[in-house]
Design a protein around this nucleic acid. Structure first.
Lengths: 161, 161
DNA sequence: TCCAACTACTTGCAAAATCGCACTGGTTTA
DNA sequence: TAAACCAGTGCGATTTTGCAAGTAGTTGGA
């Protein structure tokens, strides 16, 4: 990425995220609670290959979308965390998921999270972003009860069974 | 696109729109009022090349995002129109534009439309989608006064001067 | 202590996509 | 009738993708 094509915010977003894997990886970190290379690789529903995963993780870290910190229990393991920049993509994911659910041949199991997020509306997105800030940025929580992430995951798992 | 990687709505959206040009072309049709091959090519701020533009237009038509109709005044000219499927991407564009404006080095001139759309909120997006339905789907208008597209364009042009 | 399994990658290679640019063939305008 | 305009196509170079295999350090169990 030497110089950008134009200063248009849509174009800049496309230049950063407009490929076949970046958003899928961020989705897995955000909604699938996959935080390591191995988890992202082995639990990838779309089957990303090792070199592309390594490359995208590098680029996403360089772009300030993810941070990598070593796992104290396992010297080789890197744990990836979302940055605030990535967390603020939640409304984009919510709308894109709703759009895909409406117009593309999405399967019910995979659609359930998009549906919940769509029905929850902006208030739920805000709660979800707060949960992500607790999980990924180490903010302290002020709320009680299950997190939005847990709700989404529970709904997804219930469909999987 | 033989078979899809997974039935996840985010993944399916990425498979359809996750490249370096599709969203940029749709943005130009939607916000830039460019309706022909020539307009999209010559007024492209990012400088798309002829073969890629031709290829993407073909794919977007095949995907039901655009329709092509002949210009009665000019037998060679095709006029491209947004479908309802494409028009419902407006909220995605609005959020993605807002995100790019906040986090990426967008220039003021190019940001003005994203800013107006962000400040206008969902009510403005609905008005804009109605305007697009009038322009692109031939629906009859029930509102008076300037269209949202005209407002956005006027603001953009004012910045350009 | 040794070794197999696990971790996070890197490398090599072929296929596909993207790129800029020249060019084509029909249409309209002067 | 010539020049300009229109929507592409063809080509060769570069880049990206996808798959498979290999590497190097880490961990856990016998």
């Amino acid at each position: 990425m030497p110089d950008q094509r134009s200063g248009c915010p849509i174009n800049l977003s496309v230049e950063l995220l407009g490929d076949r894997w970046s958003l899928v990886i961020l989705r897995d970190v955000m909604f699938g609670a996959r935080r390591t290379y191995g988890a992202l690789l082995n639990q990838s529903d779309e089957g990303i290959s090792t070199n592309l995963l390594a490359d995208r993780l590098k680029k996403l870290v360089a772009a300030g979308m993810l941070t990598a910190t070593g796992d104290p229990d396992h010297k080789q393991k890197n744990v990836y965390s979302l940055t605030e920049k990535a967390i603020t993509l939640v409304p984009v994911f919510a709308h894109l998921g709703a759009w895909g659910r409406r117009w593309l041949p999405a399967t019910p199991q995979y659609s359930i999270r998009a549906q919940l997020l769509e029905e929850g509306g902006p208030e739920m997105w805000e709660r979800f972003m707060d949960d992500l800030r607790v999980e990924h940025l180490g903010k302290t929580s002020r709320r009680l009860g299950p997190t939005v992430a847990e709700e989404l995951q529970a709904a997804f798992d219930a469909m999987a069974r």
